[in-house]
């Protein structure tokens, strides 16, 4: 089903929207989650949470690129789960519970100044990405947005793992220089 029709189902509050989303983007979301979590069980939970969040977000939102929209939600949920899993490892059993409880008090949103810096940073990253040739940009996004391993990027790009490693390292170093030149304290 076309993305536009799936989004229409959400706006109509038709529950088949989730079924259609799962059919079309289930594997896509699972791979994003699993790249971050390396756990089938956790990843499946994150994908299910994604569907709930998409259901809650549309309406009022009407995403122009549905795959990116749903991918971002999966990535965000998976990253939060990753942080939670790591906190459990570091701080024993109580800490995640405490954090969960505190989350009910504070918004969890960064303060306005921090948010402004983040907005500027992401704008600078987008500007930098716009300067890259498509192939290089895809390598970077596959590695640092989708968290793909080098082998699967090499297969996708039809080149060697060594070439991917070298290219990605160059892009990373250039991005760092680009951001430092623009005054970001990294």
């Amino acid at each position: 089903m076309e993305d536009e029709n799936i989004i229409r189902l959400y706006w109509d509050r038709d529950e088949t929207a989730i079924e259609e989303t799962s059919k079309k983007y289930g594997k896509y979301c699972f791979s994003i989650a699993n790249n971050i979590l390396c756990s089938r069980e956790d990843s499946e939970e994150c994908v299910n949470d994604t569907y709930v969040k998409v259901w809650d977000s549309i309406p009022p939102k009407r995403p122009s690129i549905f795959s990116a929209f749903i991918g971002k939600i999966t990535r965000n949920i998976s990253l939060n789960r990753y942080k939670l899993n790591n906190a459990e490892k570091r701080g024993g059993n109580e800490m995640p519970l405490v954090l969960d409880e505190v989350r009910e008090i504070v918004s969890g949103q960064p303060d306005p100044e921090e948010q402004a810096i983040r907005d500027e940073l992401i704008a600078a990253v987008n500007d930098y990405l716009a300067t890259l040739p498509v192939e290089k940009r895809v390598m970077f996004v596959r590695r640092y947005w989708y968290a793909d391993d080098v082998k699967s990027i090499a297969l996708r790009m039809g080149t060697s793992e060594n070439n991917i490693s070298v290219s990605v390292r160059r892009i990373r170093n250039n991005l760092r220089d680009y951001l430092i030149e623009r005054g970001f304290d990294l």
Partner: peptide, 26 residues
């Protein structure tokens, strides 16, 4: 900035780049 913060910031790169990387075929 911690690595995980930067990874989090990257979440908000332009949608068109996310789609481009998902659909890219050599």
């Amino acid at each position: 900035m911690r690595q995980i913060d930067f990874f989090e910031v990257l979440e908000n790169i332009d949608d068109k780049y996310i789609e481009e990387a998902a659909t890219y075929k050599k």
